[in-house]
Nucleic acid binder design. Structure first.
Lengths: 260, 260
DNA sequence: TCCAGGAGCTGGTCTGACAAGTAACCCAGT
DNA sequence: ACTGGGTTACTTGTCAGACCAGCTCCTGGA
């Protein structure tokens, strides 16, 4: 152990690449608030002069910052360079999405994840929601009712809005992002497996009733009911795509009626 | 509403930048498995010929992919170009870290997230674990006991191993990764706020008892007890860093004793 | 007063070039 | 036969200069 430490030499030099130092400098300026969202970076040619590097190096640094969602190029424009963006979860979105693709997640794992997250989000909302949040959720539920039988896309959009309102009521960006990414990937994955349902009206009506249950549980501050409604809703939605073994993996989350 | 749909024209042209198309092509090749981790991309000059663009364009595309953690440049090297990397949580880490720096994510939100995930993972493990998984978890608990009073690092490593064993017992990579990333970021964030504890022996002994409770709940297939042990453990670990308002945000997850 | 058109800047891309670094090969010496 | 060193061919990192197309702004004419 001790000999290990004594023998571990540190690398002699770090071949720091020039564009990385530029990235670090601009990133620090943004993270420390010296560059605020909406501000404009100098033009590439000016940055080239300030950093004393070639334009290609400046551009590589800008591409990295753009990939991290911190700035956005705005086309040719004499009024300044790239714009500093306000915080967005987009890079988190992309990282999670590519993770899901690379891990070759299957539908049961995704649904299990969503049952965990959405169930607890609903339960938390039932306990922590404000009156304003509840009003928003109710409004989205009404919009969902109005969207009944107006086609798949309209109803799906209202569905998303409803869940977004619930997420907003507990204001935890991590839970929200995980929720939305998982939802997006789940839909993409399940749409590959089956065409649209043959009885959309009946299906939508049932979906609406489930969402109504979730709303009522949140309104009445009943976390257990909210949890169950959210999980049952998810299980029902994807049950048809799973075989018996896969369902067994999810059933603990459904069965856990009065206990968990 | 209907007029909205009719009036929504689609963008006439996408000013797609050349390097973005290159990013998409290489990204798709990786995501679909046509390029597997460890493989090497062609050299920049060869890519330049294949895509029929200039080298600067190829390089900008490579920088974006590198920023996303999908490839890694390997210096000047006649044996090939950039290396395709296996999935890593580094980009997730970076995204979360910058969220914290931009004050979009605070410690209560992180702990809340972990209480949701880890609690349900423990509960699921209590229901779905196999006997082999349980044996591994028990082994890790024993290792944790052996690491008592062997210093902060040794105990922390044993702690991580224990939780990894629980994660492995339900084999949902999405839950596992979210768990580990959140743990890493939480530790980084809380270490900034306070020095090491003054009574490490007592603290470690208490931590060990909590983990023992979790193990026993999983062994006895008591999901509610496992859930509570996991959540209480987290709440206790970070309670000291939170003010009263922040604690109120987490208390629903702790209070939910016999119900949720 | 108002609008059309040019000037000047910008980003996006290409070409060509050079230094520095590494992997592989060959060859001499032991 | 095996080790060691040097050479070579290729790579990346970076720079300089150039061109084009698009956006702003300002000016000059109607």
């Amino acid at each position: 152990m001790a000999s290990d430490q004594e023998l571990s030499f540190t690398p002699v030099a770090k071949p720091a690449r020039a564009y990385e130092m530029i990235v670090d400098q601009i990133e620090n300026a943004i993270l420390t608030g010296k560059l605020t969202p909406g501000a404009r970076l100098p033009s590439e040619r000016e940055l080239m002069a300030q950093f004393a590097v070639g334009r290609a190096t400046v551009r590589e640094a800008l591409r990295v910052l753009e990939a991290r969602g911190m700035i956005r190029g705005r086309g040719p424009n004499p009024s300044g360079g790239a714009e500093v963006l306000p915080f967005s979860t987009e890079s988190l979105h992309k990282a999670l999405t590519s993770m899901i693709a690379l891990e070759q997640l299957d539908l049961p794992a995704l649904v299990q994840f969503r049952m965990v997250i959405e169930g607890n989000v609903a339960a938390l909302s039932a306990q922590l929601r404000s009156e304003e949040s509840l009003a928003t959720i109710e409004a989205k539920l009404t919009a969902m009712h109005d969207a009944l039988n107006r086609g798949y896309d309209a109803f799906a959009a209202a569905d998303v809005d409803f869940h977004k309102a619930i997420n907003a009521s507990i204001s935890n960006p991590l839970l929200t992002v995980c929720n939305e990414v998982a939802r997006g990937v789940t839909i993409k994955l399940s749409e590959l497996r089956s065409a649209r349902r043959t009885d959309p009206e009946q299906f939508q009506a049932h979906q609406y009733r489930r969402h109504q249950q979730m709303y009522e549980a949140i309104r009445d501050r009943k976390p257990v009911a909210a949890l169950r409604a959210a999980r049952d809703h998810l299980y029902e939605s994807f049950e048809e795509f799973l075989d018996e073994e896969q369902r067994a993996q999810l059933r603990p989350l459904v069965q856990a009626t009065g206990e968990i």
